[in-house]
């Protein structure tokens, strides 16, 4: 019997494809965002809030929607006039770089300013897969409990931005915002934190302005 040293990461292949995506995005001049959260935190709602601001600022927005089944989220955005493609993973719990490349195979990215990829609602699996994005956002909501960053540290560890959504529900849920943000910072001291409500509009301007400035 003999031993062979391998030292290969199982995510290597995805990483190579992600770098290819990243080169394509950079050539097209598109700023690419990967949005991760548990199901129903408000990812699509946040994009719906962003869309009119992109129009007002003359920025072209393109969205990739990742869901296990249905075109529902892409349809919601199309109704607002947003260009959107839907990836249905049919069971897979995350998007990977290959799925993003396939979804964009026929798309014309030249002229797209902002490409948002809404990942499958899941706080674990998507965190392992680089899609070629420049910015990674983790969205949480006040209905989920303030201990999520402690339970799912990887999602926060690898994100650049954390949006706490559904601030309008604070009065009805046991959620300590300070405790949540301290836990998020524990996973990642560099996290840029935002608090929003897609229902009342609270915090939406601050978040969207910040994103638009990153893009500029």
């Amino acid at each position: 019997m003999s031993r062979i040293k391998v030292e290969k990461n199982v995510y290597n292949r995805n990483q190579e494809l992600a770098e290819e995506n990243r080169r394509r995005f950079q050539q097209a001049g598109a700023y690419v965002v990967n949005m991760i959260s548990s199901p129903g935190s408000g990812k699509t709602s946040l994009i719906e809030r962003l869309a009119p601001r992109c129009v007002a600022a003359g920025r072209r927005l393109f969205v990739i929607e990742g869901d296990v089944e249905t075109e529902r989220d892409a349809d919601r955005l199309r109704r607002l006039g947003v260009e959107a493609v839907q990836i249905q993973t049919h069971g897979a719990c995350h998007l990977d770089a290959a799925a993003v490349a396939r979804a964009l195979a026929g798309a014309e990215l030249a002229g797209v300013d902002l490409l948002i990829i809404e990942n499958v609602g899941n706080l674990i699996c998507p965190t392992g897969f680089d899609l070629g994005e420049q910015l990674r956002i983790v969205v949480a909501s006040t209905a989920e409990g303030d201990d999520k960053p402690l339970k799912y540290p990887a999602a926060y560890h690898k994100a650049d931005v954390c949006i706490l959504n559904k601030m309008d529900l604070l009065a009805w849920v046991d959620f300590d915002v300070e405790r949540f943000e301290a836990a998020a910072r524990r996973a990642n001291a560099q996290l840029q934190l935002f608090r929003t409500s897609c229902r009342t509009g609270e915090g939406i301007d601050a978040w969207c302005d910040w994103l638009m400035q990153r893009r500029a």
């Binding site: 199982v10 995510y11 996973a187």
Partner: peptide, 21 residues
């Protein structure tokens, strides 16, 4: 202090194989 950071790798690596020629 409560300013504590979580550290660790997210990778999954095949270190080595024991093989029969």
């Amino acid at each position: 202090s409560v300013d504590i950071q979580i550290d660790g790798s997210a990778g999954v690596e095949i270190v080595s194989l024991e093989v029969e020629q």
